[in-house]
Design a protein around this nucleic acid. Structure first.
Ligand SMILES: [Mn+2]
Ligand SMILES: [Mn+2]
Length: 942
DNA sequence: GAAATCC
DNA sequence: GGATTTCAACGCCCT
DNA sequence: AGGGCG
């Protein structure tokens, strides 16, 4: 399994180690590097590590772990392998436990959080969080390099936590993995590892530093401070009562139920304390939130929920728990960047010395909106209206836990679980005791099928609850198995032996698991249980059924369901917008629009005779903000259908690049040019040779309405097209249409002769609010400068008598398209476009740039001629863009440039403009310029 | 988002 | 049926 | 040649 990497390795010319003691692992002559000085010192200077282009700076820990007599850094190669059998998770002597360990299959970086390593750890965590954990590695040492595709993995080995950078395919096959019993904790994080390993050390620390008195003292001082400043002292917050189902009632308002921790903030002119439900001090854990609250110069007490997010930007209690465990300032510093939180505020208790708690919720909400505004870590919770069923459905669809309904007239009742606040949850979690496991089948016949769960009855008898077989990946299964093995016993631990279990293996009831489930059934079982994780902090004996169960029917009645019928009917009569005013809106489109005008989550449409299934129609693709409403998948599909008469001609016969966002614009994205699954037969493709694969591949086209809507279904939120077409008409009848077999064929063909010379104008004027590494955000000055640059192009094109078209890119800049006869190929077009850009650069060197390196573009408008290339594509006109405003790339008249702003044209507003102004680019292909004749004289003109 | 795989 | 995992570009520019 | 870039 190592053969693949032979060519890629760069270390195999390194000299053999000389003399002294050989490391235990080198009996097969593993290769070492002789470094002249102390390894740590040397590495400090000579070692550079980049992953996916991100510099991972890492300090090599100094200290007793490093033996100063060891002057070798081991570099294992295939010819000189590590003796895995004897490796046993112990770092070979001679390498020092604190060093960066380099071998042919991976690099280990210690996750010791000292000042110098923090930035490296943060960057690595960000890469992992952003799904970039697999990618390109550059590791330079002693002038030599390791390259290739590698993967970042956090893992725990021996006593230490490490970041492992491993070869892409390494460990793919468990059987041959020499460390198969090692836990590769890919899904877990620094803090998990920190917590998991630190139980013994924690106790030591507790003894040493006696945290209890410190904590008490701290809390006291905090209270004192608050009392002194005129704010009341902490009292526990009002709580919601669990209800079984939602309802609709105009006297109520629903809010999303966020899975985080409750937090009351006491703010007094720069002094801030944040309390948990039980009065623990939280401010220290969330320094940037605390800082933001400290910006307020008045005093108030607000109530809300602190939330962390998973990779799809959904609230995640697990991610928040990672934060809660952190105590060290350095850990918190890392987490603030890698795992940021948001404080969703939903109530205000005091304001400027006034007690608001006896006011009604609606009055308090008014005060809240007046006194607190959104900032990076603070947001006022969204109100979802009085239709609880809709609110609930929307929340569940968006991966939220459920909703909380609140009576608008209710007061704030401290320290009380009130029925004026009702929460409705989709799922539950609880702890259960692992009492054994069943035999697995198929791929799991050698491990286990399901865990057998139990809990203690009120009479302290261990009773069987159910089995749970989902929620494990292979790694979790292995971990669980090794955790359970030592606890195996012949005796069934239950008071009454349960029947019908598949060849059970019993274990002593010592492990506690957290289980998610949909419902607790009457026979004491769980519906759709899913294993989450072990709970090492809970005593098995304490695992009993949750005591208080409230009769939901009482609560629903209390919420006056009388009005439900009325409201529901109001909701249903949502009027259908008439799509009229243009001859282009065919009856087919009108039919599609009307069929999409309902609240169904899923829908099958017949489009052009094709059955197309649509799903998740209420999913938010562009979430709302400020006054802007959320754009759901349904809205997006309606947009596509309504602009299709204008859009489709510009897509026709062009290879498209999809940019897909299945979880909406805040979720993960990816590019796609091919479709390997079952392609609907209305989607046309074209086979084209690709250089990097050295073979022919099928590329997608969007030549009909069915395909356009299908692209919407698969969450392709941007429509990018090539500048070439597979159609020779009308100006390229002589060009070959064979695109397959070789680059030569492709270069001779139509697909090397573009319809346009394009210029991509991007303002690299930063607003200052961008996060480090982000592109410049849209702002007035940047766009204005871009327009100025565009006019310089226009001036030149006028001199050259060239027809040129301009459009907003939909993001921050402009695109200029010069339609050309297909008599010059991409190389020539690019050359001409480069000449043009350089010409403008010479005239306005302080305003524009053509520099390829992003860092040198700062403050200027980037004139990008490089988009004139075969594999490049640009957002088509009428393509939405992934920005919070849902702006759309829009054709402009040159005379409009002065007046407009990119966000004037959005999914919401563009259809109207189209109906009024039509397509300003409709004739772009019939207004082609002949660049071939211009080309010969270009140098004299410019 | 879709498909495959496992419960 | 539900949960989980995996997968989903490309080639020119620059040094 | 490999990472940078859009
Ligand atoms: Mn660009
Ligand atoms: Mn651009």
């Amino acid at each position: 399994m190592l053969k693949k990497y032979t060519e890629k390795r760069d270390f195999n010319k390194t000299p053999e180690p000389k003399g002294d003691k050989k490391p235990r692992t080198t009996k097969n002559k593993s290769l070492s590097f002789v470094v002249q000085e102390h390894a740590a010192t040397r590495l400090h200077f000579d070692f550079r590590l980049e992953f996916n282009g991100v510099l991972l700076s890492w300090a090599i820990p100094k200290g007793p772990s490093l033996n100063t007599n060891d002057k070798r850094l081991a570099v294992m190669t295939e010819d000189h392998p590590l003796d895995y059998a004897n490796f046993e998770g112990i770092i070979p002597s001679g390498y020092g436990a604190g060093e960066v360990i380099v071998w042919d299959r991976g690099i280990y970086l210690p996750l010791d959080k000292n000042e110098e390593s923090i930035s490296g750890i943060i960057e690595a965590e960000k890469l992992i969080k952003n799904g970039l954990k697999e990618g390109k590695l550059l590791f330079k040492l002693e002038g030599k390099k390791l390259k290739g595709i590698w993967t970042l993995v956090r893992m725990k080995k021996t006593e230490k936590d490490w970041l492992l950078i491993k070869h892409k395919d390494e460990f793919a096959s468990e059987k041959s993995h020499p460390w198969k019993d090692d836990s590769i904790l890919s899904g877990e994080t620094l803090s998990d590892l920190q917590n998991a390993k630190s139980s013994p050390t924690k106790k030591k620390i507790e003894k040493k530093s006696a945290p209890k008195p410190v904590g008490v003292q701290k809390q006291k001082t905090a209270e004192k401070k608050i009392l002194k400043s005129g704010l009341p002292k902490f009292s526990p917050p009002m709580l919601a009562t669990l209800a079984a189902e939602t309802f609709t009632n105009k006297d109520w308002v629903f809010e999303p139920k966020l899975d985080g921790i409750r937090a009351l903030s006491y703010v007094n002119g720069g002094d801030v304390e944040i309390f948990s439900r039980r009065g623990q001090l939280l401010a220290g854990r969330y320094p940037s939130l605390t800082e933001e609250l400290a910006q307020y110069k008045n005093n108030f007490v607000i109530d809300g929920e602190i939330v962390a997010f998973d990779k799809n930007n959904r609230p995640s209690f697990e991610k928040l728990q990672e934060r809660s465990g952190l105590t060290k300032a350095t850990d918190i510093k890392i987490a603030e960047q890698v795992n940021p939180i948001k404080y969703y505020v939903f109530d205000i208790l005091f304001l400027d010395g006034r007690d608001l708690r006896q006011l009604s919720l609606s009055e308090r909400k008014n005060f809240l909106h007046k006194s607190v505004s959104s900032s990076e870590h603070i947001e006022i919770i969204e109100e979802l209206g009085y239709n609880g069923n809709n609110a609930y459905q929307a929340c569940i669809d968006n991966g939220l836990e459920g909703v909380v309904g609140k009576r608008l007239s209710s007061t704030y009742q401290i320290n009380r679980r009130s029925t004026d606040w009702l929460k409705v949850k989709g799922t539950f979690t609880d702890e259960f005791i692992i009492c054994g496991y069943t035999q697995g089948t198929g791929g799991r016949k050698d491990t286990f099928g399901a865990l057998i769960l139990g809990e203690y009855s009120p009479t302290n008898k261990l009773v069987h609850v159910c089995s749970v077989g989902t929620g494990f990946d292979d790694k979790k299964i292995k971990q669980m198995l090794s955790t359970m093995k030592p606890l195996q016993t012949k005796n069934c631990p239950f008071a009454k032996r349960p029947q019908g279990l598949d060849n059970p293996t019993w274990v002593e009831p010592k492990l506690v698991a957290e289980i998610k489930f949909a419902e607790r059934t009457k026979d004491n079982s769980l519906r759709v249980p899913v294993f989450l994780h072990l709970r090492e902090d809970i005593e098995p004996k304490k695992v009993k059924p949750k005591a208080i169960v409230i009769d939901p029917s009482v609560l629903v009645n209390e919420a006056s369901p009388k009005t439900i019928a009325n409201e529901a009917s109001v909701r249903k009569t949502s009027k259908k917008k008439a799509e009229k005013g243009s001859t282009k809106v065919t009856s087919e489109i009108a039919e599609i629009l009307s069929q999409l005008d309902n609240e169904n989550e899923n829908l099958q449409l017949i489009v052009e005779g094709n059955k197309i299934n649509f799903s998740s129609l209420n999913k938010s693709y562009w979430p709302g903000y400020a006054s802007q409403a959320t754009i759901t998948k349904r809205h997006y599909l309606r947009y596509l259908a309504s602009v299709s008469p204008w859009l489709l001609p510009h897509l026709h016969d062009r290879l498209i690049t999809l940019i897909r966002f299945p979880q909406g614009i805040q979720g993960q994205k990816f590019f796609q040019k091919h479709w390997s699954d079952n392609l609907p037969d209305f989607v046309e493709t074209v086979r084209v040779f690709t250089e990097h694969e050295n073979k022919d591949l099928d590329f997608l086209l969007c030549n009909n309405l069915s395909t356009l809507l299908w692209l919407g279904q698969i969450a392709d939120l941007e429509l990018h097209t090539a500048h070439t077409r597979i159609n020779a008409l009308p100006d390229a009848k002589n060009l070959p249409t064979k695109f397959t077999g070789s680059v030569e064929n492709l270069e001779k063909s139509l697909l090397n002769y573009p319809d346009f010379m394009v210029f991509d104008l991007d303002p690299y004027l930063y607003s200052g609010a961008e996060k480090k590494g982000d592109e410049p955000e849209l702002h007035r000055k940047g766009f204005k400068e871009t327009c100025r640059a565009a006019f310089w192009f226009k001036e030149l094109f006028d001199q050259l008598s060239l027809n040129a078209f301009v459009k907003t890119s939909g993001k921050t800049g402009l695109h200029i398209y010069v339609p050309i006869k297909r008599n010059i190929d991409y190389d020539k077009v690019r050359e001409i476009s480069q000449t043009i850009c350089k010409h403008i650069l010479v005239k306005h060197p302080t305003k524009v740039t053509t520099d390829w390196s992003v860092s040198k573009r700062k403050g200027k408008v980037f004139l990008d001629h490089n988009m004139n290339a075969r594999s490049k594509s640009l957002a088509s006109i009428f393509s939405p863009r992934v920005s919070k405003e849902a702006a759309v790339s829009t054709p402009l008249g040159w005379d409009e440039l002065e007046e407009i702003y990119p966000t004037d044209f959005t999914i919401e507003t563009l259809p109207l403009r189209l109906k009024e102004k039509g397509d300003l680019w409709a004739d772009i292909l019939s207004r082609k310029n002949d660049l071939a004749s211009l080309f010969s004289s270009l140098s004299t003109i410019i």
